[in-house]
Simulated scan of single mutants.
Amino acid sequence: MAFFVVPCYNEEEVLPETSKRLKEKLQQLISEKLISEKSRILFVNDGSKDRTWFIIKELHHSDPLYSGATLSRNRGHQNALLAGLMSAKNYADFVISLDADLQDDINAIDSMIEKYYEGYDIVYGVRSSRKTDTFFKRFTAEGYYKFIKLLGADIVFNHADYRLMSKRALDDLSEYSEVNLFLRGIVPMLGYKTTSVFYERGERFAGESKYPLKKMLAFALEGVTSLSTKPLRFITLLGFVIFFVSLLMLIYSLVQWFVDETVIGWASVICSIWAIGGLVLLSIGVVGEYIGKIYLETKHRPRYKISEFLNS
């Protein structure tokens, strides 16, 4: 049995078309006997403020192929996705996660399922190119993937959250209990047999993106601090470098004093104070970010609460 898990936040504009396309794909796969007739499409409402949950309930009552779950409040894309995955794993042999805007080509699902039957537990949907992105988004996204790799995180280049996961991979994922979620970095840690399928990403056919620049930056920071401690090591290295430079400046000042060429440099002193002060504040900020995450983790608060679940 297969489940399509689709997180939704204020997606009333796209849901009618999304549900139609996914149903056609599900029925095609059932007719080709690639998946069971009991397979479902699970929409997860992440505390939407529009009619998203109302539409999901209507879809469920009109056709048992549609399932639905709603969180008690908005918890963010990653938590909504995790809620759907953990709910679906109790029923499915494998789960495919994808976004509600269907910019990810759903025809790649056929190849994902083929790879699953070949023995792969995790199949990543990877963009073959970024032609549809603006230069800024393409440059920053690809730069981020390279940067996070440099920090030592195991992450699949140009992959978001479009993937297939087997039941045993989901069972292992459920053991990862951190509050600060970055699934595209956690899933590679599971260590099962993995592969990728490639596809062209399309344009969003309705509505607006739920990831403006502010949210994208916050998500990027979440990924770095959740997966790597190297920024803390960089601070230590920076401290040694500044200390070494200060020793050189001390030696230089002594030499200038001995040769009687001392020059009072107000500008250089002020610049040094501002530079070192800025580095100190930046370092405190990075350390504070990690301490804040430790604080949240120690509370062991639930990552989400499902207030209603609809499944035939």
Rank of each mutant, 00 (worst) to 15 (best):
F4G: 08
V5D: 08
C8I: 09
Y9I: 05
E17A: 05
E17M: 05
L22F: 08
I30T: 14
S31Y: 07
S31T: 09
K33M: 05
L34F: 06
K38V: 02
R40E: 05
D50M: 03
F54I: 03
I55Q: 15
H60Q: 09
T70C: 11
N74P: 00
R75K: 15
G76Q: 04
A80L: 06
S87P: 00
S87D: 02
A88D: 05
K89A: 07
I96V: 15
D99K: 09
S111G: 03
Y117F: 15
I122R: 04
V126S: 03
T132I: 14
T134K: 04
F135L: 10
A141Y: 01
G143E: 01
Y144K: 09
K149L: 11
I155Y: 09
A160K: 13
D161C: 13
M165S: 11
E175M: 10
L183Y: 05
L190R: 13
Y192S: 02
E200F: 04
R201L: 05
A206H: 03
E208Y: 10
K214G: 02
K214C: 02
K215P: 15
T225G: 01
T229P: 06
P231V: 08
F234T: 01
I235R: 06
I242E: 14
I242H: 05
S246D: 00
L248N: 04
L248R: 08
L250Y: 11
Y252L: 12
S253Q: 13
W257D: 04
T262H: 01
T298L: 14
R301Y: 10
R301S: 07
I306H: 07
N311C: 11
